[in-house]
Design a protein around this nucleic acid. Structure first.
Lengths: 189, 189
DNA sequence: AATAAAAATTGCTATAGGGCAACTTTATCT
DNA sequence: AGATAAAGTTGCCCTATAGCAATTTTTATT
C-alpha cells in the first residue's frame, strides 16, 4: 500500500499501526493516462479510487451534449461515482483522468466489506461522505445564489491551484458557464 | 420514542429490538409552529431533527436578500444543518418549519456519541449521508445542466406531492428561479 | 363572514449569459 | 522542430430568465 494512503488512514481514522498491513492487500496501484476514462455513463461503477498523483474529474453529459463537471479530485482524495457504487445502478456520470495519474483502486465489494468490519475504514468512509456533504451543500447554494462572476471569484479564492492544473474548458463546466463566458469573465476581473 | 422512529431504525439499521429502549432517552418530542425558525444563519447548530409530521426546509439568504432552498424534509426524514453540526461552525443556512410539525430532537453531542458507540445509529447516519450524497449530486447536475422548465418537470415527476404541501414561492427558491418565472413555466406546461 | 395581508399571475422591459464565427494562442504528435 | 489539432479569445447578436408594476387569488386574523 502506498505510503500516502497509510498517512491518510493515520490522519483521518487514527488507525492502529498493526491494522495497516491488513488493509494493504485490498488496494491495487494503477497507472492512468491523461484523459483516460475510468467509468462511462451507463456502466455500473465497480471501484473506488484513491488519487496518489494527478487528478480525476467526475462529469456528466446532458441532452445537448454539454459536459458538466461536478467534482475534481486531486491527490490524497478518494474519487468515484458513489451514487452508482452505493445503489449498484448504472452511473449517470463519467470518471476521467485529467493528467497522467497514479491511483489506488479497491473493489466495491472489498470497500463496503471493510466499511462494515474495519472501524478505520468506517471512519474514513464517514469522513468522505461528510466532506462531500459539506462541499456539495456549499456548491448548491453557489449555483443557486451567486452569479457567474462571484462563482469564479470564489473558486479563485478557495482553490487557486485549480487554475494551473485544469483547463479553462473544464473549469467552465465546473462553474456552470460556457467557455466563452468564462473567457469574458476573466478579461473583466 | 415515537413509533415512527422505531420503525425507521428497524428498517434502515435492522436494529435489535432490545436496543431500542436504550436509544429512547436521547430523543425529545417537540411541537413546532408553522413558519417557526429552528436555526438561523450565524448560529451554531446544536440539534438533529427527525420529522414525525409536517415538514422542515433548509435555506439560505444571499447578498441580495433572496432565499435559496436546498432541501425540504417531509415526515420520516432527519433534517439539520449537518455542515454546522459536523464542523461546529456557525450555520450559513436556516432551518424553518413550513407547517405545524412534530419533530424529535437529539442533541449534537448525543447524536455523535451514538454514531460512535451504537452500530445502529452509525448505520442510520451512514444512510443519511449516502442519501444526501445521491440527491445532492443529482441536484447539482440538474442545476448545471437542465433549464428551468426541465427542472420543474423533473420535480413534478419525482415529488408531485411537494406541489400540494409547499408554496410556489418555496418551490421557486428550490428550483433556482424567481416566483415570476415559476408561474410562467406552470402556465406553459 | 369581513378585513387585511400575503402569494400568485401576467404584461412589459432589462440583462446575464449563450452561441456562432473568425482569429489567436497553446498543446500534441511524429 | 514543424505540422496539426485543440483550446482560448472576442465581436456580434439572440434567448431565457430577472425584475417591476398592476391585478387577481389565496390565506390568515379578528
Amino acid at each position: 500500500m502506498h505510503e500516502m494512503l497509510k498517512t491518510y488512514f493515520r490522519e483521518i481514522a487514527c488507525i492502529k499501526e498493526e491494522k495497516i498491513p491488513l488493509l494493504s492487500p485490498y488496494f491495487t496501484e494503477k497507472a492512468v493516462q491523461k484523459n483516460e476514462v475510468l467509468l462511462r455513463e451507463g456502466e455500473v461503477c465497480k471501484f473506488n479510487y484513491f488519487v496518489v498523483s494527478g487528478c480525476l474529474r467526475l462529469y456528466s453529459v446532458n441532452k445537448q451534449g454539454i459536459e458538466n463537471t461536478r467534482y475534481i479530485a486531486f491527490e490524497r482524495k478518494f474519487a468515484t461515482s458513489f451514487t452508482s457504487l452505493i445503489t449498484g445502478k448504472p452511473s449517470i456520470e463519467y470518471i476521467q483522468s485529467l493528467e497522467k495519474s497514479t491511483v489506488l483502486t479497491i473493489s466495491k465489494e472489498d470497500f463496503f466489506y471493510l466499511v462494515e468490519h474495519e472501524p478505520a475504514v468506517n471512519k474514513v468512509y464517514r469522513h468522505i461522505l461528510e466532506s462531500a456533504y459539506i462541499t456539495t451543500q456549499r456548491r448548491i447554494y453557489d449555483l443557486q445564489g451567486a452569479d457567474s462572476l462571484n462563482r469564479l471569484k470564489w473558486l479563485l479564492d478557495q482553490q487557486p491551484d485549480v487554475f494551473n492544473k485544469v483547463s479553462s474548458k473544464v473549469i467552465a463546466s465546473y462553474l456552470g458557464v460556457t467557455p466563452y463566458t468564462l473567457s469574458r469573465l476573466k478579461a473583466n476581473l
